[in-house]
Structure formats: C-alpha cells, structure tokens
Computed example of a mutant assay.
Amino acid sequence: MRTEEPLSSAPTATEQHWQWRGHAIRYQQAGSTGPAVLLIHGFGASSDHWRKNLPELGQHSRVYAVDLLGFGGSAKPLPGSDLTYTFATWGSLVVEFLKEVIGDPAYLVGNSIGCIVALQAAVFEPTWVLGVAMLDPSLRLLHERKRGELSWLRRWSTPLIQTLLGWPPFGNFFFTQVAQAKAIRNILLQAYGRKEAVTDELVHLLLKPALDPGAAAVFLAFVRYSQGPLAEDLLPQLTCPVLILWGEADPWEPIALGRALAEFSCVVGFIPLAGVGHCPQDEAPEKVNPLLLDWLRDPFNKTNKCK
C-alpha cells in the first residue's frame, strides 16, 4: 500500500510510503527513465539528506531515496528480540524495497552507515544490485574487532559508555541533550568540511524526526551496536562494481584509513574530494552528482581509479 503527495521543497520528487513487515517506510522518488538508483542515508539522517541530489539524478535515472526503519519519516518501533536495528535488518529492508517498490535491479548509493547497508544488501541478493557507490563509508572504528587499534583510554571507556547508555535514565537523558538544535548544529559543524552547508534547514530536517516517539530507543540501540559486518568483510563477497568517494576533510572516517578499501578487486574507483567532510552529497552536490552520473553511464570504467 502506498500513499503519495508532492514535496513543496523539491518539486521534482514525490514523497511516498511503503509497508514493510507491518511498518510504514517513507521514501522519495524522482525521474521516470533510465537505470534505477537507490540512495541510502547515514545514521540519524533520512532521505532528505539527498534533497540536493534527487532532482539532478532524476533527470537521468529513476532515483529513489529511502528512510531506513527507525529514521526520518519511517516507523520507529521499539527494538526487541524480533526486531533489531542492525545491518542485517536494514539490508533485508533494502532488498525487499528493490523487489516490491522498484521492481528492477538497481544501483545503490550510500553515505556513512548507509554504505554498509548497501554492501549487506548486495551480499544478500547480488542479482538485484547492479553496483554500489560509497560516500565516506563508516569504518566502524568502535567495532569490537577494532578496539585493539584504539588508544588505551578509548579502548576501555567505550564499553563503559555503551553500558551506561543502556541504563534508561542515563540513556534517555543523553539523547535529550543530543536532540536539540544547538547540539545538532555543533555536530554538523564538526562533521562538515564546508561549514556554510550547515543551514537552519538542514538542522531542522535532522531534528524533526529525532523528536518522534521511539527515536531515543533507536538511537541508543545503534550506538550500543558494536558487532555485525565491516566494509572489509563484505567487499570481498561482491561481484558488482564499487565506486568510493571520500571527503578529505572527514574527521570521523579519516580518508587515510579508508584508502585500503580501494585494494578490493570490486572497487573501480577511489576519488578524494578536497575540502569536503563526512557528507559529500550534501556539502558538495556539484562534485558528487556529476561523478555519480559518470559512474552510472559506465560503472566498470577504471580510468578514474585514484589512490
């Protein structure tokens, strides 16, 4: 079942809803011809983080942007034994979205943890994924298998903080401090290389869903999730082409640590973006959109492989 209404702020896109396993999933769509493309946001974001990409990509492709379960305008059910906020859950959602909504194999484009979701979907159903573009993929530096690489202080403090966040009084208090306009703006100013891209509109788009019932539980469930796959676990299993774009000014996922991902055989390009931080699609759409369109036209071309 789907409902549809035009987006006043993005006239070339429509906002729609899809029922997945009894939960409402919001997504946006633009374009009616060309290859199918699905955009997957990062942690705490939504399909609105692709508002600068949907119109241009939609001129050349059938492009979709989905709000993952727990984020944006999608349902935020409480986590439990039958529902976990993990890459397996979101990867399954993406695969079923491809089959039930798009109806054709598609290219997946992710940012941050959205990259891991895309890779997981490609591993689950390789015949439904034509290629994966990763924008500043999450390296998951707090993963339990990577903690040995951290400083002594961070190695021992991270489990303690995660335990504290699991105590509802502390966890909920922490979330209320984060879910404020000033806090969100400060976080964005840290993550973005282009500070001028941190606008009131962007802060509002991220704050609004954080005030929904269930948002705190989703946030706390994921920040305590230190298991599951890493990009280096999934990339060797892919047979489709992978493009990597990386902001050189990303303070959260340092490009120096990410360059090793270019060594996997499925990676056809690793392109640094000067002066750009963690969210290239929003900070530098004039760079990202042409690069994605070039890749969609020739996804196996390795002539632009930069390391």
Rank of each mutant, 00 (worst) to 15 (best):
D212H: 15
S157F: 09
L293F: 05
Q19V: 15
L139E: 00
D67P: 09
F219I: 02
L68M: 14
G228I: 02
T199V: 10
L57H: 01
T199R: 06
D104R: 13
W246Y: 09
V37C: 08
R224F: 06
E15Y: 12
W20V: 04
L150D: 00
G44D: 04
S9W: 15
Q237E: 13
E144V: 13
L205T: 14
F87I: 03
D200M: 04
G91N: 05
V223H: 11
G34V: 11
T84Y: 03
P79R: 02
G72A: 05
T163V: 10
E253D: 15
V223S: 03
I116N: 06
P251W: 08
S47V: 09
P168R: 11
G214R: 06
G131S: 07
G269N: 05
R185S: 05
H278S: 09
R194W: 10
E15P: 05
L238D: 02
E100Q: 15
H204C: 03
L135G: 01
G42L: 04
I25E: 04
K305G: 08
I184S: 01
L202S: 00
V267F: 10
F300L: 12
Y85M: 01
L296C: 05
F170D: 00
L7R: 11
I113C: 10
P77T: 14
N304L: 12
T84H: 13
A260C: 13
W90F: 11
G70N: 06
D233R: 03
A133Q: 03
G70T: 12
R26Y: 12
P105M: 04
L230I: 05
A30T: 03
I271S: 06
N172S: 07
G34E: 11
C306A: 11
W128P: 00
L296V: 12
I113R: 05
V132K: 03
L202E: 01
F222P: 00
D200K: 05
L150H: 05
N172Y: 15
P168D: 01
P105A: 12
Y107E: 01
C306W: 12
T12Y: 13
Q162S: 02
E248Q: 15
